[in-house]
């Protein structure tokens, strides 16, 4: 087992850094229903970490715990070596955790550009007064951050729809805009909730390419939930498998593929 502070190099030559986030014995309940039961795993810097499992396994709840939307009843979240106290979602976001949503959560009344600009909230802190006269730091900030955003827009190839209201875009492009918004935040961890849900093969290929490129070019740490096993196995460095709120497997794609419990869960062996 690798020490949490150590780094290692993958077969394809990428460097995977020390642990950036660690979940310890997380239990989440909704009334009597246990959504997550005593799950621990970690996410390392620069890796692509997948969470998989059948429907209702608690994957999305896990993501919601990471992004601070749910506070678990038991267990702790360690972020960059420090225990994270219970936080509001916006505080978590300000720590550098960005995410996308299973059902796209874009701001439909705003243009693509404005949507992506909202990703820069963390970096833009001009006072209301400065903004109201559009001078000093407000103007500087607006231009500087626009440059970053334009890079992201270029990267995700959505230049042509920059000024289009998001409400008018087709599904596939919306997914991409949402990714752009998350990426624009330059997050230290990027959470993707089923980034390829509802896409055709071509769109999936595009999306996979973006995910790999993001990881490669910006070194973004990515944690993702995905149903398409093929995609997950190809993309990810390590995989957590969940079933009925429990962790049943954790390791490299190969390890997970040969794990008996995982095979049972996916092939539907009766639970005792």
């Amino acid at each position: 087992m690798l020490d949490s502070a150590e780094s290692y190099t993958t077969e394809d030559g990428r460097t995977i850094g020390p642990v950036v986030m660690e979940m310890k014995n997380i239990t989440l309940r909704f009334g009597g229903v246990v959504a997550i039961q005593d799950i621990s795993f970690d996410i390392r810097e620069g890796e692509i970490r997948a969470i998989i499992g059948p429907n209702g396994a608690g994957k999305s709840s896990m993501l919601n715990v990471i992004s601070g939307f749910y506070n678990p009843q038991e267990g702790d979240v360690f972020y960059k070596g420090k225990k994270r106290p219970p936080m509001k979602p916006y505080q978590v976001a300000r720590q550098g955790i960005a995410r996308t949503f299973q059902n796209i959560a874009l701001f439909e009344g705003m243009s693509v550009l404005d949507n992506v600009m909202t990703g820069r909230i963390r970096q833009m802190n001009a006072s209301l007064f400065a903004q109201s006269i559009w001078k000093c730091e407000a103007e500087r900030e607006e231009v500087a951050n626009r440059e970053v955003v334009e890079k992201v827009i270029d990267f995700l190839e959505i230049q042509h729809i920059r000024k289009t209201p998001v409400g008018r875009l087709p599904y596939g492009l919306k997914k991409r805009v949402e990714l752009a918004r998350a990426l624009a935040a330059e997050p230290s961890i990027l959470l993707l909730d089923e980034p390829m849900a509802g896409m055709n093969v071509e769109e999936k290929e595009d999306m996979s390419r973006f995910i790999l490129d993001m990881n490669d070019e910006f070194g973004t740490t990515i944690a993702l939930i995905e149903h398409d096993m093929g995609v997950v196995m190809d993309l990810s460095d390590r995989v957590v498998v969940m079933d009925y709120g429990k962790k049943i497997g954790d390791g490299t794609p190969d390890e997970v593929r040969n794990n008996q419990a995982v095979i049972d869960a996916y092939l539907g062996v009766a639970h005792d």
Partner: peptide, 15 residues
Amino acid sequence: MAIRDMDIAAEIIGV
């Protein structure tokens, strides 16, 4: 506008 269009998503991206 983010709050107007989807307040929960706005909070999760840091508003």
